[in-house]
Nucleic acid binder design. Structure first.
Lengths: 214, 214, 214, 214
DNA sequence: GATGAATGAGTATTCATTCAT
DNA sequence: GATGAATGAATACTCATTCAT
């Protein structure tokens, strides 16, 4: 007969950081940086408040770690897709968009994106990081995409300094949307309809009229 | 006999100083809700801290009042424009967009918009108000605009449940942008170029190919 | 009939700082800097914890204020005495010593002195202040005293770089004593005996005059 | 048959590492009791934090052990010196003083002394120990010294209840000095000059022998 | 024995809110 | 009405102590 005393705590050095980041991610996304209590993060992660400080120097560092750990994996995937795709640029665009949303929908990426917009001005260095590692890389991808289309004659001539932002806007808004005004959304939008109309109208604006006509 | 409709929110004083709301608006936009100190608001408005409480029940109520008071004026102007305009829908679209940005650029509307996205989940009733009074009315305007274009044969057939959001996204993003990642923007975007490309590509997606060709 | 409701608190802008400093002085002297809780200081002063922060920016600033406010008055008095005294230097010495102790005995000066020795290394800038404003001025007084005695032929030639410290030591120790090991003092020393023997031996030394003469 | 007196405090382990006490001594002296982190003590001693608790029940016990272990060796040496010395009492006094400082200067005794004055009121039982084992024994030594001088006719008649304290004061102050206001000492005192003047004036006093005689 | 991850009570500090003046 | 001194609940962070490994 084995006696199984419930230990007061467990040693989980390796698993801890991810558990803490996970709990923090969820709460930061839900309440924002300031309104998230470290007490609550600790409780959600099933540890004591002090344990947080074994792994992160401060609330701010925890926040930064959350952003860094969560954001990067997604961006790499898109970059690979762009590099490897063969076929018409229009299709590549549709693939990228679909893939983007699939990546975003099942983790907290969208919430994190909202969080960054909300807190960027309070954390300039984090904003810099996010800008350089996420926004900028994303824009570079879009530039490559547009250049590909323009070079092949599929797309019309476009202003590459502003089009990436314009093109990405409806996708970013979709992400923000689902974490801000979801609370009061009366007619929940069909994401599939949204994506379809977005891709259609975006391409309508991108494609050469010559081609669009055919 | 005058009809006196009960307003949605109650003016506690007839002479409620706009200075308080003005100071609060600026600081809320600059620092966010949580990081804004009432001390600072009072100082900026040139009153004592206690005075704030003569006019607003709490920090939250002050925030709500700021949003409510500041947001509405803008939306009316656009609605009037839409109702009165005569001429091609394409031109109406360009006028609306230009007007939107002009309205937004010289007051704190853009910052307030960012603030709403950041705080919506913490203030459900405010989110509801914002959704109903701003987002929804804005979407209704866009629906009217699109219907006008579709009815006249200028625009192709569009999904009116999602296109308003998609169409507005680049404008909303422009507003968010200028209050979030401005701190680290290395290549400041030309707003004029942005608006031009936005209108061109949006119309490219909206217009009938037949017309777009000509 | 007057109704006398007990007010939740009283406005005492002018009296507060002294009350706070008084309470803080007593507790700092009793427990040292680190072991003194601001909670307790506030309670002793009859205010809430927050009130402390209306008058002092931090625990450290409170500590500094306590030292500054309490120390200086005493030193001025001794300086005046030295400047005005007429008569033999030996008598001046006895007057200064007696006066010193009288100043010290009825307020918390002695405790503050102990405190400074204990905390000096933790508060370098405060140590500097104390050194310059208290120790140094005190030494200058002793130098004047000794010079006076040497010039008049009353005192023998003395090393003025070290004698002030040596001469003051028994007095300083007496102050420290009463605030450190008082807790375990089995045979309480008679201060009068102490002062008498101190003055006698300081003036005359240990040796028999017969022997000293030879 | 060996007599095994129960020691006043119990060694918990035969091999109780002196390294722990050494590291603790240094840090306690440097930062004071409260500001010394056990983390740091452990790191300096090259052990883990938990290990400290194998040897000492608590931070307080560690502190007490540090004081007890460090203090005693010094005092014995002086006692032996006093018992064995043959020659004039004046010379014995000079030998004792010189020896005292030599003992103190190269270990942390002086720092520990300062520490005791600072913390005595927080550790009454430690204060008692220090008082009985250090201060009292020291005073008894001085009493013997003075009696020796008085009996031999070298010293004049002195109040033995207070003179030991008075006589020791400049030495104690020298120890405190070097660990308190050293941080802001502008004109560093020469210890040799200090000791010389101390011994001279203690023995001879301030007054001219000519005048003292009369 | 030794380790160091985990704990959680404790404390300085902040700031929205109240209310005596 | 206006003020700003006073409040005290709330919270980030620390660190002596414990105990699973």
């Amino acid at each position: 007969m084995s006696f199984d005393p419930k230990p007061r705590w467990e040693r989980r050095k390796d698993a801890r950081p991810q558990e803490l980041l996970g709990a923090a991610l969820e709460l930061f996304v839900e309440h924002g940086f300031a309104a998230t209590r470290l007490d609550e993060v600790a409780r959600k992660a099933g540890v004591s408040k002090g344990t947080l400080y074994l792994y992160f120097e401060s609330k701010e560092e925890l926040f930064k770690a959350v952003v860094r750990e969560t954001i990067l994996p997604g961006i790499v995937q898109s970059e690979q897709l762009l590099a490897q795709f063969e076929g018409p640029t229009e299709e590549l665009f549709r693939v990228l968009v679909t893939n983007w949303w699939n990546m975003v929908v099942d983790n907290k990426l969208a919430g994190l994106c909202k969080l960054m917009f909300a807190e960027a001005s309070n954390f300039p260095d984090l904003a810099k990081f996010y800008h350089d590692e996420v926004i900028d890389r994303h824009e570079k991808m879009y530039i490559k995409l547009l250049e590909r289309g323009m070079n092949s004659g599929e797309f019309r001539q476009l202003d590459l300094t502003v089009m990436p932002k314009i093109l990405a806007a409806p996708m970013v808004m979709l992400m923000l949307w689902t974490h801000s005004f979801c609370v009061c959304e009366v007619r929940p939008t069909s994401v599939n309809d949204y994506l379809k109309s977005y891709m259609d109208s975006a391409l309508g604006g991108l494609l050469c009229t010559e081609r669009a006509r055919s």
